[in-house]
Structures are given as C-alpha cells and as structure tokens.
C-alpha cells in the first residue's frame, strides 16, 4: 500500500516505512540506543531527500525518547539540573546546526555535510565500540573480571569556573563542560537527525563522571527537548519535516522497541555491543563508498520556487 508523503513529495510504501521503523526500533530496544543514526541513512538509501530524512527523523526521536524517558522519570533516575544545563547547550547547538544546514542547503552541499558527518562519527564510534567489546569478550573467555576504567578523579576541565552542585549525580563541577557537550550534541542532532545518545552517554560517564544509574535517564531527558527544538527549527528554517513520514516511523519504532528489549535480555552485553559495532561500521562503509565511487548520475535537480 502506497502513501503520499506531502513534504518529501513522493509516494512510499507504508509497510516499508513501518517495517524499517520496527527493525530500527527492535535494534534500539535490544541495544539500548536511540536508533536515529541507523534510521536516517536507511531513509536516504530508500530515496527520501536527505534534508527531509534528517528533520523527520528528529521528529520521530521525540516520540521514542518520551516513551523511553518516562520510565526513567518514574524511577527518579533523571538529574534534572544536569539535564537542563545539557539542554541549554543543546538548544543553542541545534540552532547553530540548523543555520549551518540552511546555509549549506542553499549552496547544494547539505547532502555532503550529512554523509561526511555520518562517515566520520559512525566509523569512530563503531571502531571504538568494536575494540572495547572484543576486548571484553576476550577477558570474559579467559575468566578475568572486567575492569571498568575510571582514570583519575576530577580532571582539570571539571574544575573550571562557574561550578554548580548536582545533587542527584553527587557532583560539584563547572557547568562549562556540560554546556559544551550539550552544544556539540545539539549540533549533531540538527545535522544528522540523531538524538546523540551515542556521544552523550560516554561523555557523561567518562568526562562528567556521572553515576551510571542517572546517565540514561538524563540523556533521554535532554534528547526530548533538543530533538523537539531541532524539529521546530527545521520546520521553520527549512520546511523539511514530513509529519506523515515521522508518524509512520513512530508506529514501527514503538512496536519494534518492545520486542527488541525482550530479545536484548537473552543476549550477552559485550556480544550485543560487538554486533551493534559491526552494524554501525557497515553503515559508515556504505556511506563512504557512495562518496568515493563515481555515482551513476552526476547531475541533480533542485526546484527553486517551492509553494504549496
């Protein structure tokens, strides 16, 4: 069954979109990640204009982070003060990201911006994850307990001025690092159509040294607001949010996430991470090859007068 996507200006198969939403939702439930970094490239692969894919995917992540975040909220596993600081940086970053996106869109370079951001971030994150999980698998096979690396307490960046007490995280640190992390993630969110959890969570654990029990909840808390900001800003500046597309992805996503969470409980953590790392590297590889090999069509068309 086909459905017309009013902003993407194309018709797509409903079952394909819901199916993609469920597969990515399944993986995000299984691995505990947002899934935006898999969904946006998939949407581009099926022919959705990259600018529409990014903005609509940000809209979908609002839904998945609200449903995920509520569970943590009820368990009080959210550091609201830290979340608000991260969010302030995030909203500023998403504004900057959307402006950059708009500028490069007018110059015809936004597809390159999206692809190259993906190639860089996915290959770095994928490689780090793969290394870490393979190491963990080897250690467990040898029967050694895994040591969690927590080098030196309070690095100099956390001792910068403007310190604030975060009771929930039991921290007294400068607000400059969380603002900067928030800003970076907000920018990535606007450019790549992701929640940014894959950067935010390691940054909170290793840089801000937040206790792991509040990390996921706080990350989701700020993702809700940052992806909402990204959605509104893309709608205002670029008119690229396709609500019909986003809603179909949401439907698939929520169904998939529930089954994914069940499947994830049966698999071992480090093997899951190794699998996810391979998927991430695969997507990065595909995007890179698309940039390196001569495309079949060297020309592209952009309509100048867009009206309803």
């Amino acid at each position: 069954m086909q459905i017309y996507l009013p902003i993407a200006e194309m018709s797509a198969n409903i079952m394909t979109l819901i199916g993609m939403g469920s597969v990515v939702g399944f993986m995000s439930g299984m691995f505990g990640v947002g899934g935006g970094f898999l969904m946006t490239p998939l949407l581009i692969f099926i022919g959705i204009p990259p600018a529409v894919a990014v903005a609509s995917e940000a809209n979908q992540i609002v839904a998945s982070s609200v449903s995920g975040g509520l569970a943590h909220w009820r368990r009080r596993a959210v550091d609201i003060r830290m979340g608000l600081i991260l969010m302030s940086g995030g909203v500023a970053g998403s504004y900057a990201g959307v402006q950059l996106f708009k500028l490069l869109r007018a110059l015809g370079q936004v597809d390159l911006l999206i692809s190259s951001s993906y190639v860089i971030f996915l290959s770095v994150i994928g490689a780090l994850m793969l290394r870490e999980s393979l190491h963990a698998i080897r250690e467990t096979r040898k029967g050694r307990p895994i040591r969690v690396r927590r080098p030196g307490q309070h690095s100099w960046i956390l001792r910068l001025p403007l310190r604030m007490r975060f009771r929930q995280s039991r921290l007294y640190i400068s607000i400059i690092p969380p603002l900067l992390i928030g800003f970076l993630v907000g920018m990535l969110s606007a450019i790549m159509g992701v929640g940014g959890g894959f950067i935010m969570v390691p940054a909170m654990i290793y840089l801000l040294r937040m206790p792991t029990n509040v990390v996921i909840g706080t990350s989701l808390f700020q993702i809700i607001f940052v992806t909402s900001a990204v959605t509104v800003l893309h709608a205002v500046e670029n008119q690229t949010v396709d609500i019909v597309l986003a809603v179909l992805l949401m439907i698939g996503g929520v169904i998939g996430a529930q089954f994914g969470a069940m499947a994830g409980q049966r698999l071992r953590g480090e093997e899951l991470r190794a699998l996810l790392a391979l998927i991430v590297l695969g997507v990065a590889c595909k995007l890179m090859l698309d940039l390196v090999f001569e495309p079949a069509e060297l020309f592209s068309i952009q309509r100048l007068e867009v009206g309803p």
Binding site: V62, A63, G68, L70, S228, T231, H234, V236, A246, M250
Partner: peptide, 17 residues
C-alpha cells in the same frame, strides 16, 4: 507545523509508555 509535529510525537511517546 513544527510544534504540531512535536505535540504528536510527545502524545505518541506518552501513550506508548
């Protein structure tokens, strides 16, 4: 339009949770 998109997403996320 943007706020409407966010509203629908929020409603859907809340409903599912």
């Amino acid at each position: 339009y943007g706020l409407f998109g966010v509203f629908i997403a929020g409603l859907m996320g809340w409903g599912v949770a």
